[in-house]
Nucleic acid binder design. Sequence first.
DNA 1: CTTTCTCATAAGTATGTACTTATATGTTGA
DNA 2: TCAACATATAAGTACATACTTATGAGAAAG
Lengths: 104, 104
Amino acid sequence: MIESEVFRALADPTRRAVLERVAAREMSVGELKSHFAVSQPAISQHLAALKGAGLVAERRQGRFAYYRADPTGITPLLSWVERYRAFWPERIEKLKDVLKGMDP
Amino acid sequence: MIESEVFRALADPTRRAVLERVAAREMSVGELKSHFAVSQPAISQHLAALKGAGLVAERRQGRFAYYRADPTGITPLLSWVERYRAFWPERIEKLKDVLKGMDP
DNA sequence: CTTTCTCATAAGTATGTACTTATATGTTGA
DNA sequence: TCAACATATAAGTACATACTTATGAGAAAG
């Protein structure tokens, strides 16, 4: 299930930090690695997980791989939250509007 | 970190389903169990994880334990999403309003 | 008191995950 | 052509997690 993949991808703090880096701006694996205390394969593995969850996109150029966050990636998460509407009577209505404003 | 606990708690599909049940209405462990194909200890363990993440609250009455979803529990998740503001220029502003409307 | 119930905890197991080092794949520049 | 580079993949390891069965703790009912 895609929902589970997104939640699982975000459950790891290092992976969230990686996502936040590539959300700030597109970045190569090497530059990304320079910000973390883990090996290059670990970064590549985190990126693969984020990509599998639809949270990042990849652009290949020569021997470099540039990653950036995909803004549509957290949609499944927001959709899941939206399903709490019955539980959160009024508050959730505004979130619904946010979802409508997003690309489908 | 509480963020990680929330994401980890929600990463498991059974646990999300449990949370959705107790979000619909307060329920005892036994009744909750009747909706799932896992053992009673498994349900208790899922509830302990959800409680640890602040997603459910417990009410004890005699030999029964009643669980209900805690609406403030997903706040860390929404706060994390809100930190994407720089990445999602306009869309996220509305989500910010949602957070303001919530109990702190 | 003792049995029955509701639930939590303990202990064991199989699978998943986050990392490592080593190596493979493909690209560039000397 | 080939050596250095950037990244991905493979394989191994330590720890986490999702389950199980067995048992413990407390409340209710006989």
